[in-house]
Design a protein around this nucleic acid. Structure first.
Lengths: 342, 342
DNA sequence: TCGGGTGCTGCAATCGAATGCACGCACGGC
DNA sequence: GCCGTGCGTGCATTCGATTGCAGCACCCGA
């Protein structure tokens, strides 16, 4: 059993012939100035050759910092999130932090429990992607001075830093694209109206329709109960069953748009011949669909990276005021949109 | 600044009128028997009302256990991994553990650095999904007594516990399905031949072809350089350019199959009219493709869960011998397979 | 020559929980 | 009535790194 114990600060200090305290100071860039330059060099060299790695647990105990961040997601298997996570981790990693991921499945109870657990693990802050409009838990955290950054969604009434796509611009790009193709009666299958994103996109839709002088008819807007294919399909079926007349659909997100594809197949509708569809998010493999889905492309990785940066800033200087970022979007025109049938 | 410090073991002990040591014992199921049942109850009640949460950092310092596991993945944005991760986290969570995820991008250097970092964070074990065939790093870890479980891939020559889909069965299901449809000349676009999965599936393909009495021609097998659409497309183009004659393709995985779709579009081939294709993995949204992809369905979440269970077992009892699990697979027949054109 | 810096290093306490050891007390047996 | 036994509890140390404070040596100016 060779099992070479990883060297501790003591070992380094002994090998360098100094006191552990001195070794500690020499090894930490912030305090290195306190020790003689030669000594510092010597300690660092010894640490290097011994392969010394500070034990973050011990350090965390004293400094009350864990070097970890909590990532609170609804569901990692939603293809929107992995790129965000990668963006986050890229930044955290460079700063010596790690991210702890939890999935809430949008269940407030699970969310509460998970956040509690993460707090007991001494995370230094949260990146949260689950904001419902009502969010007492977040308010409470904020009151307790917990650092957090919202991604992708934004709670109302709370002054929290957030990184979100510019929903209004995205929706407007979609509507304008359809209007330019000649569509006049456009449906919006909105996201759940208890999510900030759902409401924001629906509002943007109404504005765009008005600004572009298209027909605006409340019957052309429906809310889906979830951000899912099933909910999207259900909403579209309701619309068709009600006999609503339209030639294009702006879906709240890509999954809702995929639900529309299912309904088209059920009802024998051609896309884009009979109906055009635009999604939102540009999740992977949409170009492989038939037809390839026209959608709003969101820079997910960049969103994650910005969020991580913001959080690290906030941790470094908690007094700095909250800042929010809206990221610009682009429309990816593919095969699911075409001029309406004459 | 109310900022109520979270209570420590001391606070609980004081409030309960006992020594911290007693409180510690009362609160830990393992040592609870050492203290008077009444005292234990009282301490637990006090802990409850104070909202006491043991600080895992402090505990970890003393016990050299961190309650964390390292998850080493090639790339979280590969849709295969999120379900695995969820399966893992479900089990870890129940056991009070958390998972720390890192992405290696299949870069041995990044992998080494990440594993090093995770070790310094005192993870108690690893779940690793990046096994190349050659894997000196894993050997070294094993020698050092680090607990680990492989998922989805399996290194050769190392006696490590692993959870993998039963590749041989999956490939055989695919080949048999095609054979039953009447295909005789079937191509295999294998995964990279430096991955255990790539080799295993290729071997299974050759066996299945032999067992079913189909034509076996070395020209019908090609290895892709990566598990990606581009590599799949490239391999198929090579096959077509060489003038090889075939009516069906068994792809090493779904992405490779998607690459085939791209080539079909380029070359004006109909699927499944001219060529049938079978994928492997059943990643999300394949049913939305045109045609929907026939593929081998892999229980990813279950793979993750099993891996986590195995690792926790190994941590609890390191002397237990390594155990590996092959999970059964099923074929999801969709629209990309049909009898060959007469 | 002596006082006051200054620069560097060591000492010791600390973070929060776990744990080996020892002590105290009650009780039972003789 | 005394001693042994054992249960329950407290004391003190430990994990590894950080940090306030003290001390030492040396230098400079007065």
């Amino acid at each position: 059993m060779p099992a070479v114990q990883t060297p501790t600060l003591r070992d380094v200090a002994d090998a360098a012939g100094v006191h552990p305290a001195t070794a500690s100071r020499a090894l930490n860039p912030g305090t290195r100035g306190l020790v003689n330059a030669d000594t510092a060099r010597r300690v660092m060299k010894v640490a290097e050759t011994l392969g010394y790695r500070p034990n973050p647990i011990a350090r965390g105990l004293k400094t009350a910092k864990s070097g970890t961040i909590g990532l609170v997601l609804p569901d990692l298997t939603n293809p929107m999130f992995p790129p965000i996570v990668r963006g986050i981790e890229a930044i955290l990693e460079a700063a010596g932090y790690s991210g702890l991921i939890v999935n809430t499945d949008n269940d407030p109870h699970r969310e509460r429990v998970h956040i509690e657990t993460l707090r007991s693990r001494q995370v230094e802050g949260f990146i949260i992607a689950t904001a419902r409009l009502e969010h007492p838990l977040l308010e409470q955290l904020q009151r307790e001075g917990v650092q957090m950054v919202m991604v992708n969604r934004r709670p109302e009434g709370l002054d929290l830093p957030s990184i979100t796509p510019d929903d209004a611009v995205g929706v407007e790009l979609s509507v304008r694209h359809l209007a330019e193709l000649g569509h006049r009666r456009i449906v919006h299958l909105a996201g759940p109206d208890n999510t900030s994103t759902g409401v924001a996109r629906a509002r943007a839709f109404r504005n765009a329709v008005r600004d572009l002088g298209l027909e605006h008819d409340p019957a052309l807007v429906a809310s889906c109960s979830h951000w899912s294919e099933e909910a999207g399909a259900e909403a579209l079926r309701g619309m068709l069953d009600a006999g609503t007349d339209f030639t294009a659909v702006v879906a709240g997100n890509d999954l809702i748009a995929l639900g529309c594809y299912d309904v088209f197949a059920e009802r024998g509708l051609q896309c884009p011949g009979d109906v055009s569809v635009v999604g939102f998010n540009d999740m992977p493999f949409l170009d492989k669909l038939r037809p390839p889905l026209t959608t709003v492309s969101v820079p997910h990785q960049q969103i994650g990276a910005e969020a991580a940066r913001l959080l690290l800033e906030a941790i470094a200087d908690p007094s700095r005021p909250a800042r929010s970022v809206l990221l610009p979007l682009t429309l990816k025109v593919r095969g699911s949109t075409a001029p309406p049938a004459a």
